[in-house]
Computed example of a mutant assay.
Amino acid sequence: MIKKMLYVLNIGLWLLLSCSGGSDDVSPPDTPKDIIPTNLTVTVDVLGTDTNNPNGDGSGVITVSIHADNADSYGFKVESQQEVKNTTGVFEYTFTEGGTHEYVITAFAYSSTGNEISTFKKVTVYVASNDLQLVWSDEFDTDGAPNASKWGYDIGNGCPDICGWGNGEKQYYTNRSDNVKVENGMLKIIAKKEDYQGSEYTSARLLTKDKYEFTYGRVDVRAKLPSGQGTWPAIWMLGANIDEVGWPECGEIDIMEHWGHNATVVSSATHTLSCSGGCENTKVGETVVTDYASEFHVYSLVWNEDQLQFLIDGDLKYTYNPATKNVTTWPYNKSQFLILNVALGGSWFTIDPNFSEVVMEIDYVKVYQ
Rank of each mutant, 00 (worst) to 15 (best):
N39Y: 15
Q197C: 12
Y74H: 07
W14V: 14
C279D: 01
G168A: 06
T231V: 02
P233I: 00
L132D: 07
W236F: 01
C163I: 03
K85G: 01
N262H: 09
V46E: 08
V84F: 07
S268P: 00
I155T: 12
K334N: 13
E97M: 00
T106W: 03
K170M: 13
D243C: 07
K150L: 02
E305M: 00
W165R: 04
W14S: 11
N326R: 08
A68E: 00
Y196H: 12
V78Y: 09
G98I: 00
H261P: 11
N175R: 05
D30R: 13
V42P: 14
F120D: 14
N157P: 02
V288I: 15
I253K: 12
D161G: 00
N333Q: 05
P32C: 13
G12S: 13
L16T: 09
Q197K: 04
D306V: 03
A68H: 00
A109M: 02
H297D: 02
A145H: 00
E361Q: 08
G21K: 11
W259H: 14
I105E: 07
G251W: 10
N304C: 14
I189E: 05
N304Q: 14
L9T: 06
N304P: 15
I339W: 03
R222E: 04
G277M: 12
Q133R: 12
N281E: 01
D72W: 05
S267E: 15
D25E: 06
F337H: 10
Q171A: 08
I190N: 02
N55L: 00
G158S: 00
E79S: 02
N321A: 13
W14M: 11
V104N: 12
L238V: 11
E83L: 11
E357S: 10
Q82Y: 12
Q82C: 07
S268R: 02
V90Y: 01
A109P: 03
T41R: 09
S203E: 08
I235M: 01
D352G: 08
K317L: 04
D50S: 11
V135S: 00
S335E: 15
S20Y: 08
A343S: 09
F355N: 13
W303S: 12
I255H: 01
D25T: 11
I162H: 06
N354W: 03
T51M: 03
H101Q: 10
A240W: 01
T96M: 09
L15D: 13
N157G: 01
G285N: 14
N39M: 14
Y332C: 12
A128M: 06
E79L: 05
D34H: 14
L9F: 07
